[in-house]
Amino acid sequence: MLRYFLKRLLSLALSLVVASLVIFLALEVVPGDPAAYMLGINAQEDTLAVLRDQLGLNGTVVERYFAWAGGMLRGDFGISYTYRTPVAEMIGERLWISLPLALYALVLSTLIAFPAGIWAASKRGSAADVTVMGVTQLGVAIPNFWFAMLMVLVFAINLRWFSAGGFVGWDAGFAAALKSLTLPAVALALPQASILARVMRSSLLDTLSEDYIRTARAKGLSRGQALWRHALRNALIPVLTIIGMQFSFLLAGAIIIENVFFLPGLGRLVFQSISARDLIVVESVVMLLVFAVIVVNFAVDMAYAVVDPRLRTRR
């Protein structure tokens, strides 16, 4: 187990290093001098030099990479070109919307998908199964931002159950904050829940046709008992993979959904920064999201080991 853990940890660290290199180099090729952009065309050469130094734009590529990467390790993401405030602060504020939103959506998606997938698999071929499969087929095909717009039309504009957008802030109380994240979270969760339910169902059907299910039935377990005691945990392995992948889709998808609901999250920050050519903010947000994805994949690998004893002892 320890060896597996260390091996995964090493691979996590390596991925982070390579990802940071890719992001750094990609934005390194952008033409133009941010310092000149910030100060305008009439800037003096010496004030430019001072600003460049502040922004860490001097030195060789290698030096700048280590300065940037080292800063990030200490939680210093640099200074925004447009707002002249530390990027870490800007991201910190926004993260309090984006992260809860992604988690909320993930919880919703799992809560919907597991029962639906298990129910459909246990009643394969029945009307229940056909219904679940039909609904999820639609859920997979629906663009989430369009679904979000329709929900705004129905639940915010017509029924007035929710507000059409914006975030009340966590100061307004947990329930109120959660309520203002509900429509975005549902919009994010529905397509993911559909995918997850389908994976759950087909994975469960696969394991139900395994030899050891027949062995369990020969011991005297009923169909239901065999499903719960033997099939479900084995079926979880591909489902975990999908949950891991979904977290990254949810984080990225949140960028679009935040636009629909005018939520001041990371997504809005990214688009504002792109139009303002505030590249250091873009760079930092992308790195942060990639970091999140890599860490979640690491967590999924650990979850595999909990489910599957073969990973714990071998290798």
Binding site: Y212, A218, H230, N234, P309
Partner: peptide, 28 residues
Amino acid sequence: GEQDLCRMRGRDVGMVFQEPMTALNPIR
């Protein structure tokens, strides 16, 4: 009925299969 069959299987009749490599649940 199915309930009585479940009671019979494993208690009155035991069964051994051809493929020992796949006949056991790998994670228990």
